[in-house]
Amino acid sequence: MREAPGSSPQRAGGLFPAAALALLLVLLVGANRGGVLALLLLPLLPLCVPGPRPGRARRWDHFLRWGFAIVLLVGIVAVLLLRSPAALAAAILLLWIVPLLAGGLLGVREEEDPR
């Protein structure tokens, strides 16, 4: 076995396993109240992305991941609270267009710290 090519210096975190377990249980049970919980767990996905870089770039990576998580959370809450077609507009804007532009313009930098 070789060293992982994208080895992360990050310590073992329990966030992703806990989120995956909660999602698995909710998806298996399938009750609607649990579904709301599952939707609220989705914004955790960007926080669980492995491979933050070392040094100052690591802080930028964490900033971006939290940014993604917050935008997705606002989008999911808007979908849950708003009526159609405002909920549809919020979903397209906050779950599609804003993350797409943020990820495309800021999301992947090479080793330098962009700040």
Binding site: G6, L45, P46, V49, P50, G51, F68, L72, L95, W96, I97, V98, P99, L100, A102, G103, G104, G107, V108
Partner: peptide, 10 residues
């Protein structure tokens, strides 16, 4: 919205 960033980053 997130998959292109996710795919490239990970």
């Amino acid at each position: 919205g997130i998959t292109p960033w996710l795919l490239t980053r990970v």
